[in-house]
Nucleic acid binder design. Structure first.
Lengths: 215, 215
DNA sequence: GACTGTGAAGCCATTCACAGCT
DNA sequence: AGCTGTGAATGGCTTCACAGTC
């Protein structure tokens, strides 16, 4: 795969957004689109879209726009949609079993393939059709199932210890649902998702809005 | 409540992070902290922390630092932790039932109190201890339970229509788990959470890292 | 001496505006 | 004429660096 130097983080975080909409166009049989159309659908400035795309080369044609099929294929590869990716869920508590159920089904190539937990009474059981392995099997399963990425949903206090185990077992990316800041080698990627934080931020805005009203 | 003009979005999104760590200090019986300590724990530059805090007035004392108790109380109020907040879950599919189970238990004052669905066979049932209401009961329940915020987890195609109903029923905030861009009056706050997008962004970084290695 | 609060500088991302291609 | 790709301008956020306070 090509690698692109110095793509802004903000751009990287918009790629899934672009990709999803372009797939939608493809499903509808649309053959081309302009940055202006995409801009209106996604509420992202059209110049931002053109600049984002331009980091990856000249994806469009002047005076024409962008070709749905070729751009969709291009972004698909960027986001790993060209090969099946197994994801493990580490920690099968409330949120963990929730994610097992969720399955990230929006992306075609993503498959939640197994789960891990420390609790002996969970190990060996099948939850929502998925086997639960012992943490001792981490290294083995990561290799056998070619797991590159796991979702981490253990209790906060155990997060760093488990992250260390994951790194040792060769994991390449962690989708971290705990509020613990993880220390990992920089070759391992971490993406933090703080659901309670998102809700609290929303509460903050709602509170501010209510106070504004009352004035 | 006080309102603060023009707090940067970036600051608002860090408030839960700060608050959680300060609660942690409080639990440990610590009585003061400096921006430097917080900086090291959260990996946020200490000047950023001081600037973020300063938007809300002079919260600290020069030469001393910040008082755990008073700052924790202050942020608690900002984030609505001084009163119980009921949250509804709209759409009890995979992700919806997952959130019902998750319960945002990390925040003390947040309580997932009910769920709504369009499917007649779900309505009236109890899931994880929560009653499922019909969408027709939205307005009634929003009033009765003083719901200000709901999590929206319906299929993408229905998201806008349901959002309209929510707005009509008087909801103040929507935690939007669908990839649909919601059109709402600007007095209604929307916070988007795109779990599949987060995972795809992580996949992008992992792919880039792998390509770098191979060079 | 220690630490905050904040002007000023710097950096990253967005947006403008237009040359260049179809 | 229509739309991209991109220098230049702008804006928002972060970081420096230090005066002010305890």
């Amino acid at each position: 795969m090509e690698t692109y130097p110095k793509i802004p983080k903000a751009t990287a975080s918009r790629l899934p957004l672009y990709y999803r909409y372009i797939l939608h166009l493809e499903d509808q049989g649309v053959s081309k689109f302009s940055s202006k159309e995409l801009s209106e659908a996604l509420d992202v400035d059209s110049a931002t879209i053109r600049r984002d795309f331009s980091y990856f080369g000249e994806l469009g044609k002047r005076g024409y726009g962008y070709d749905v099929k070729s751009v969709s294929e291009f972004f698909g590869k960027l986001l790993g949609e060209d090969r099946l990716m197994n994801i493990g869920v580490v920690g099968v508590g409330n949120l963990g079993s929730a994610l097992v159920k969720f399955r990230f089904s929006a992306a075609r190539s993503i498959r939640v393939s197994c789960a891990f937990d420390i609790k002996e009474d969970l190990v060996g059981r099948i939850v929502e059709g998925l086997p639960i392995y012992s943490m001792d099997d981490l290294a083995t399963q990561i290799e056998q199932q070619r797991l590159e990425i796991v979702a981490l949903t253990v209790p906060t206090e155990q997060a760093q210890k488990v992250a260390d185990q994951l790194v040792d077992a060769g994991i390449k990316g962690i989708l971290n649902f705990t509020p613990q800041l993880l220390q990992v080698p920089k070759s391992v990627q971490v993406q933090n998702v703080d659901l309670t934080g998102e809700l609290q931020t929303l509460i903050y805005y709602v509170n501010q809005e209510r106070s504004n009203q009352q004035k």
